[in-house]
Design a protein around this nucleic acid. Sequence first.
DNA 1: CGACTATTTGACGCCAGTCAACACCGGTGG
DNA 2: CCACCGGTGTTGACTGGCGTCAAATAGTCG
Lengths: 252, 252
Amino acid sequence: MATEAQAAPLVRSGVALLARKLRVRDTISAEEEQVLRDSVTDVREVRAGKVLVRHGAPLHESTLLIEGIICRYKELASGERQIQELHVPGDFADLHGFLLKRLDHNIASVSRAVIALVPHDNLKRISEDHPHLARMLWFSTMLDASIQRETILSVGRRTALARIAHLICELCIRLQVIGLSEGGRFALPITQADLADASGLTSVHVNRMLKQLRDQEMLTFRNGIVDIHDWERLASAAEFDEAYLHLDFQPR
Amino acid sequence: MATEAQAAPLVRSGVALLARKLRVRDTISAEEEQVLRDSVTDVREVRAGKVLVRHGAPLHESTLLIEGIICRYKELASGERQIQELHVPGDFADLHGFLLKRLDHNIASVSRAVIALVPHDNLKRISEDHPHLARMLWFSTMLDASIQRETILSVGRRTALARIAHLICELCIRLQVIGLSEGGRFALPITQADLADASGLTSVHVNRMLKQLRDQEMLTFRNGIVDIHDWERLASAAEFDEAYLHLDFQPR
DNA sequence: CGACTATTTGACGCCAGTCAACACCGGTGG
DNA sequence: CCACCGGTGTTGACTGGCGTCAAATAGTCG
């Protein structure tokens, strides 16, 4: 747990990222942003690979990611893991737990991460006193669902190369929205094994596909840095269409 | 479009199915059920294979399924189709469109179907005047998201046999909740090609897996009727765990 | 330097896709 | 009444994309 003095600026920047993400889609007032800041009660730093929420456990708070990458995942008895969604800063990883009461999947850190905790009591208060802000929070859960639907298409029908290409395109745009990607270049502190778990492949095959993307000069991914060299060809190989990210600004 | 006289009992039964589904998870008052009935403005019957909502088109109403099977799907340029979710009666297929404003995927009928239309204006009124009912509607969108996450695990990591087995288990439980499945036997008016699109396989391979499930005396699927002969072995082959269907009753 | 994790590459195998032929069924029209 | 037809289901032969296994290399942290 961070001390009070350390926590305040982290909360400020984490909520600013969430607000930035939402402001692409609708107006968020300064007051609404303040309400969000006030709803955070705790900030903590976690190492990579730590399970933050275990499926089935009753939930009383939700997790706002401030720094790093965390994910939702399930696994089979064999130990094979499937990541349902990778979360970037400004994402609520388990806001849906507010209504579901317990999660059907795990939440784990992929890289070292900083998270803020928001008690469900505070969310309930928001839902009662700030209807528009509440709608925007629900919107963000709908956005996650939309991202997850695109993932079903990827793992169900896209080729291995297209899956990787698509995931990179998506992360590029999502990070761009919060100012963490510029000119097709961004930090992505995850391993190839994580990429495999997110795309329904093996790490060996992910490695082969990354090599192919590199050889074809579409992108490089080295030392946790993604460098997209040819967005057009990459997006085309992925059949990437950002419509599912609902980037249009309108009253919600 | 159905006449007024035909529509009323259909609306009644469709809303009753939705209420039945929700009442497994929390109390729904008779008044709330009446509010839902009053929110329906139109009922129509559609033939199999008709696109009901095209992705990207602005939405002003949501679709409540009363009879038959409809689905959400996306397709690649090659024409390969991936069904993200099969909907059973009592499901709102595009309630999420209320906040997203336009869908990122298509909605189509899989079998002949009867649907009710609920204008977004009426949903907005519910969200303002009936907070608990509104939460229950949002809960149902979270439930869809949970089902879709399980689908990611299926198409990403389960074997072909397990995918089919899992899908059948899920549909059995979901239909049981609304009284359309009993003793492991239920009508499923869809083709093997639809099953393939829902499980990320080809229809040829679905056929092979169905034969295997039949030969191993776990289930038969013939003429649109599913007959589960050995639930234990089927669920075990599928690694089916109903937790993700959030069947627990509690205040939400 | 040593232990460990992550990346890379090659050889080989298998699950599911592809292609093709045929059976079946309900509907339609001559 | 039967020939025809399109959609669906069934099966076999063959192919190929991705998984598996294994070993070498590179990078990282104590």
